[in-house]
Amino acid sequence: MRPDSRMSRTLHALMHMEYADGPMTSETLAEMLRTNPVVVRRMFSGLRDCGYVTSEKGHGGGWVLAKPLAEITLLDVYRAVGEPPLFSNLVAVDHPECLVEQAVNAHLSATFKEAESAMLAKFEQVTVAMLAHGFKVAIKDGRKGR
């Protein structure tokens, strides 16, 4: 199964939007993310519904930030893109009647739930602006990238 990269791609796009000279079209964002414009529109629909971005149709239109990156947390983005799985599912259900499998699954499920709670708590503390700051530092230091 292919990993779900919606969150990473969305964060990538939001940071580029911060430094864009104007609206960015779905086509421009799709080219940058190496995907299809339909995927970008689908990804951004949740962000638009939450009020983080807006879009305008027609010549000169595209996606723009509706809120500063300092007001958008990783948790906000995670929720807006549909709460993709944070971890792969390592719980087996080959033999649900097996007591060993039940014991293993109970422990793994509890551990995953605890790890997920910790990760979401961290997501709530980090803004997209904090990520953008790391980008600015890298540029200032002369590191290359896109």
Score class of each variant (00 low, 15 high):
103 A>H: 11
91 V>G: 01
122 K>G: 01
141 D>A: 10
71 E>V: 03
146 R>I: 01
99 L>S: 15
81 V>F: 02
29 L>P: 08
114 E>H: 12
61 G>M: 01
5 S>V: 11
83 E>H: 12
21 D>N: 12
34 R>G: 03
3 P>F: 06
102 Q>T: 10
22 G>M: 08
47 L>V: 04
115 A>M: 13
63 W>Y: 15
54 T>I: 12
11 L>C: 14
20 A>I: 00
95 H>K: 05
85 P>L: 11
10 T>P: 08
7 M>Y: 09
100 V>Q: 12
65 L>W: 12
11 L>P: 00
32 M>S: 14
82 G>A: 07
15 M>T: 12
113 K>P: 05
15 M>Y: 05
18 E>S: 03
142 G>N: 04
63 W>H: 00
21 D>C: 00
42 R>P: 10
131 L>F: 06
30 A>E: 11
59 H>N: 10
137 V>N: 13
134 G>K: 01
57 K>S: 13
1 M>W: 12
139 I>L: 14
143 R>V: 06
98 C>Q: 12
94 D>E: 13
16 H>S: 00
71 E>C: 08
125 Q>E: 10
18 E>V: 05
6 R>Q: 10
55 S>F: 09
101 E>H: 05
6 R>L: 03
17 M>L: 09
55 S>K: 03
109 S>N: 09
16 H>P: 00
69 L>H: 04
124 E>A: 15
52 Y>E: 03
85 P>V: 05
121 A>M: 07
63 W>V: 00
70 A>M: 13
66 A>S: 11
146 R>P: 06
20 A>S: 11
66 A>V: 09
1 M>A: 11
50 C>K: 10
134 G>E: 13
3 P>G: 02
130 M>R: 11
60 G>K: 07
8 S>C: 03
64 V>L: 08
25 T>I: 00
115 A>L: 12
140 K>A: 14
2 R>C: 08
101 E>Q: 13
38 V>S: 13
92 A>V: 15
67 K>I: 01
103 A>G: 09
101 E>G: 10
100 V>C: 12
11 L>R: 02
1 M>D: 07
25 T>Y: 05
50 C>P: 00
121 A>K: 09
116 E>R: 15
32 M>H: 10
55 S>M: 05
25 T>A: 04
31 E>P: 01
33 L>D: 00
92 A>F: 12
96 P>K: 06
87 F>T: 05
93 V>T: 15
